[in-house]
C-alpha cells in the first residue's frame, strides 16, 4: 500500500471553524442569560402548548437565572468577534473559490434525499460527490445564511432605532427577537447532528479538520508482465 497526502481543509477554513466554535458557544450561553429575563416563547399548535422554553430545572442546572446584566455584557462584546470571524470566512470562501465546493448545486436538493437515505442505511449507494456531498452542501450553506440572519436580527434588537431599516427588514422589533431565538435553536440542532456525523465518520475525518489533510492509501501499480508496452 502506498500512502498519499490528500489536501482537504485549507488553513483559513480550519481557523474559522475552530474560532467560531467557542465564539458561538459564548453567544448561545450569554444569549440564554438574556432570554431567561423574558422567557415567553413556547411551541404552540392549534391552541395546545407542546413545549415551553425552558423548564425551571434546565435554568437552575446551568445556573442561568438572574444574570441578565452579565449576559448582555458578554453578548455585546463577543458578538464583534463572532461577526468578524464570519465576515472573514465568507470573504475567504468567495475569494479563494472554495464556495464552489460549498454552495448547493441544482441537483443537490434531489441528491440530499439520497444521501439521507444512505446515511440512515436505507439505501446502499450514495451519490458521487466532490469534497462535500449534497446534504453537506445544503447544511454548510444554510448555517452561513443562518449566521447572517442572526447578525441582522441581532443588530435589529441591539439598536432598533439606529438600525431601523434592519428592524423593518425583520418585521419589527418583536419579530426580530423571535427569529433571533429560533435561529439559535437551529444552531443547537445543527450542532447535535454535526457532532453525531463527525463521530460516525471516524477519527480520520475529524483529524483532517485539524491537520487539513487526509491520508489516502492506494495499491501500488502492478508491473505488467504480458510484454505489452506501457503507455
Amino acid at each position: 500500500m502506498v500512502k498519499k497526502i490528500k489536501e482537504k481543509h485549507s488553513l483559513a477554513m480550519r481557523w474559522c471553524h475552530w474560532v467560531n466554535f467557542p465564539m458561538l458557544s459564548i453567544m448561545i450561553w450569554s444569549g440564554m442569560l438574556i432570554y431567561w429575563a423574558d422567557d415567553e416563547y413556547s411551541v404552540k399548535l392549534f391552541g395546545h402548548t407542546y413545549f415551553t422554553f425552558f423548564p425551571e430545572g434546565f435554568y437552575n442546572y446551568f445556573n442561568i437565572t438572574h444574570r441578565l446584566w452579565e449576559g448582555m455584557a458578554f453578548h455585546f462584546l463577543f458578538m464583534w468577534f463572532f461577526i468578524l470571524n464570519g465576515i472573514f470566512y465568507v470573504a475567504y470562501t468567495l475569494i479563494s473559490g472554495e464556495w464552489r465546493e460549498l454552495v448547493p448545486q441544482k441537483k443537490s436538493f434531489k441528491e440530499a434525499w439520497l444521501v439521507l437515505l444512505h446515511d440512515l442505511h436505507i439505501r446502499k449507494m450514495a451519490p458521487p460527490q466532490n469534497k462535500y456531498n449534497a446534504a453537506q452542501r445544503i447544511a454548510y450553506t444554510a448555517i452561513i445564511i443562518m449566521g447572517i440572519g442572526s447578525v441582522i436580527t441581532g443588530l435589529a434588537i441591539y439598536k432598533p432605532v439606529q438600525f431601523y431599516y434592519l428592524t423593518w427588514l425583520c418585521g419589527g422589533y418583536h419579530a426580530a427577537r423571535i427569529i433571533h431565538f429560533m435561529l439559535t435553536i437551529g444552531y443547537v440542532f445543527f450542532f447535535v447532528i454535526h457532532v453525531v456525523q463527525v463521530f460516525l465518520a471516524g477519527w480520520k475525518n475529524f483529524s483532517s479538520a485539524i491537520t487539513g489533510f487526509e491520508v489516502v492509501e492506494t495499491q501500488p501499480k502492478v508491473k505488467k508482465t504480458d510484454g505489452k508496452k506501457e503507455n
Binding site: 438574556i34 432570554y35 429575563a37 423574558d38 415567553e40 441578565l68 448582555m72 432598533p160 419589527g172 422589533y173 418583536h174 427577537r177
Partner: peptide
C-alpha cells in the same frame, strides 16, 4: 414600542 431591557416590548 416601549422596550424593556428584559426583552419584552
Amino acid at each position: 414600542d416601549f422596550k424593556c431591557v428584559e426583552g419584552w416590548d
